[in-house]
Amino acid sequence: MTTMTVPERRVTPATAVRNTLTLAWRNLVQIKHNPMELIDLSIQPIMFVLLFAYVFGPAMSGSVAAYLPILIPGIIVQNALFATMTTGVGLNVDVTKGVFDRLRSLPIARTAPLAGRIIADVVRQAWSMAILLAVGMLIGFRIQTSALALIPAFGLLLAFALLLSWASVFIGLSVSEPEKVQVFGFVVIFPLTFLSNAFIPLSNNYPAWIHNIMEYNPVSQIANAIRGLLIGHDVAGHSQPVIGPAINALLWGVAIAAIFIPLSLRAYKRRV
């Protein structure tokens, strides 16, 4: 005990990055032991695409093929929103199970547990987006612009999901058990995605107030941007702009993050 090596005063940036990647690994390697999560990430999106395409398609657009350009971008957006819940659920489990106490008693970067979680969830997001797209292509969805358009489309979605996931972080750090994060997610995300043009073409048959909600809903904006990038035109054949809706969607995301980042950091400090 007399000759003690003098410990480091603080974490170097290189250590912070390594800590973050280690914790991201930890959040991903879990999937191996939890087949349910793999089902959540793969089977559920596939099921949604098939059900929506073959049940709603003929009624909505006259045929499955005609419906896919509306459905696939929309369902990718919906899936990305639901996937943000994973972040909150995971954080909540860590806090309630004492994993956070353990991590915080270690000489690691303070931000690493949160950053590691978010990076792992971005990987999960990318995975389910790829699955949705692949299933869509199998049943007839075609990218009508260029395969390269996938890069900005994925980038935009990931950025949007990352901004929105702060709401999930806040909920995850605030409620007492993981199930409550899920309930909260469903109560908010279901109405949000259905009051949009994610699954239906906007028409004038809706009362004005619902129409307005649907039009300005961030989900509609991001879905339009993705449609513009992958298909290039809307159902009526008019060209679909990308930049405007993309900026609108990101502005929504930034506004949501601006509210929830300070709230989350406060909850994080209080909770841990």
């Binding site: 003690m4 003098v6 410990p7 480091e8 005063r9 603080r10 974490v11 930890r26 390697v29 879990q30 032991h33 939890n34 199970k97 004492g98 994993v99 956070f100 106490d101 353990r102 008693s105 270690l106 000489p107």
Partner: peptide
Amino acid sequence: HRVRQLIGLTGQYAGVDEMLT
């Protein structure tokens, strides 16, 4: 940060990741 380099903590409720081996 220096204290954390010297200590180990075992909580009342096991702080292990249940999903990991």
